[in-house]
Write a protein that binds this DNA or RNA. Sequence first.
DNA 1: TAAGATACTGAACGAAAGTTCAGTAAACGG
DNA 2: CCGTTTACTGAACTTTCGTTCAGTATCTTA
Lengths: 201, 201
Amino acid sequence: MNKKQLQSEQTRKRIAEAARHLFVQKGYKATSIEDITAATGSSKGNIYYHFKSKEGLFLYLLDEWDRDWFDKWRDKQHLYGSAAEKMHGFAELLVIEDLNHPLTQAADEFFGGEIESDIMEKLSVMTADHLRFNQDLIQSGMDSGEFKAGDSAKLALVLEGLVIGLSRLSRRSNSNIDEALGTYRLAVDVLLNGLAKAPHT
Amino acid sequence: MNKKQLQSEQTRKRIAEAARHLFVQKGYKATSIEDITAATGSSKGNIYYHFKSKEGLFLYLLDEWDRDWFDKWRDKQHLYGSAAEKMHGFAELLVIEDLNHPLTQAADEFFGGEIESDIMEKLSVMTADHLRFNQDLIQSGMDSGEFKAGDSAKLALVLEGLVIGLSRLSRRSNSNIDEALGTYRLAVDVLLNGLAKAPHT
DNA sequence: TAAGATACTGAACGAAAGTTCAGTAAACGG
DNA sequence: CCGTTTACTGAACTTTCGTTCAGTATCTTA
């Protein structure tokens, strides 16, 4: 790879990085191309040289994020023994990797906008992937006898809800990583052990 | 109140109602004034006759929603004996009243947009109110001995996260009320009793 | 080193959306 | 019953934003 290609890739990365932060912070619609140029120093035209459109740029980010996150999980997964440890590891990775599912809010916003779009498809796939991931996590705890038996599919929904919500809260109150880690850890503890002293239906 | 004032108020309500649905469904930016005119039959000018601006309309809706929800909670509150029942009642009211905190997503979206706005203030107040509400709920359970002792402030954050996340999930998968109720009920059960068979740190 | 490819600029365009306003019709009040 | 206020219309404006494109500079390669 020669000098030109290298620099080109660097600017593409720089644009993507800046765009990601802006989309996470402000949402899809509220982030303008000009915001991105301001954050990168690049020109409008240059963004359209590297990406087909605003939508294309967003699509690229969705792909990148999902891929990266899952890779990192694979690397860490073997460290955890019990299902409870896995759960905590899961939460920790969510926080460390960019304060959680950072694009989902922007993605949801997009989702609401148009009926016809690649993004709709991609989002459905992503959500399905997350739910399956959560379900596997929970099911493995049940199989090992560590968790109570139950409907792992529905519990996956609850877990996904908790993760999405905590993500939003952490981002909004722009808390630091340590605070966020503490909150997530507490959330997982509650998820495992509950609030109540004695079992209650 | 004469005929004219009555009809005026009705149209203002009609506009507010339509706008609320659209904001919830599509987000703040994505719903245009023209969308609202299409949904109401009113003209653009008429919306600006009843509301100062798009932002003002949104502000009005935030106020209205928070006020209404809390009133309904006050009406129901006395029905619940234990803290666990309160918790379930809380979840149920969230689902029934318009599939949860319906404007928060749009509000967050707005929040990201401008630094300088009434909405920022209003949102902070709202979030603080919710956290206090949650904390009271949890603290009362601790005081009565029904819940384990713990940091009710931090647990309030976890509860808020769960509620926000579930709200988003329910809205996205446009599930019906019964499904949503089931998911919320399960979530509260997990919150109370946990997933794990035996206590685990 | 010269020709061509690549990376990038920024002004201009068109569509979309928020806002305004002169005008109209209906209701109110004296 | 007539002047005035109120509720409302819709075309016009202003701004914003995504997108395009002709032009420029830099690097590659032969």
